[in-house]
């Protein structure tokens, strides 16, 4: 597998948080890198946006060279932005991110 980065919205910097149920308004993104199986948690700059948090979050992830996201539900703006940014979207579920990444690695998540 090529080097891939996948992002998941989370609400805390804890070791293994559960996926947050909103995308653009998540406090953080957990970014997992397949190159070395490492993960980092970064603050989402769009969390306090008055409007347009979804697209702003996508712009941020795009600037971080993210290729895939695992998400809860998405608004139409965030959805359009992710597709325009050529980021692959996978349907997540509210379970700990490590379990979610395992499922993603085994190709068990539905591509949206």
């Amino acid at each position: 597998m090529n080097n891939l980065k996948v992002a998941i919205p989370v609400s805390s910097k804890d070791d293994n948080p559960i996926m947050f149920e909103r995308f653009g308004r998540a406090s953080y993104f957990c970014i997992f890198d397949t190159e070395d199986d490492s993960s980092v948690v970064v603050a989402n700059p769009a969390v306090g946006a008055r409007g347009g948090a979804g697209p702003r979050a996508v712009e941020f992830l795009s600037s971080k060279q993210i290729q895939s996201v695992i998400v809860p539900q998405l608004g139409p703006n965030a959805d359009g932005a992710l597709r325009a940014a050529q980021i692959t979207i996978f349907q997540g579920e509210p379970i700990p991110v490590k379990n979610l990444i395992d499922k993603w690695k085994k190709d068990e998540l539905r591509k949206l």
């Binding site: 008055r50 347009g52 996508v58 600037s63 325009a84 050529q86």
Partner: peptide
Amino acid sequence: EYNALMKVPDQILVFEKM
């Protein structure tokens, strides 16, 4: 200010309603 524009690698998206 209104997050109506967004940069992706090959274009600038305009969110008209924003």
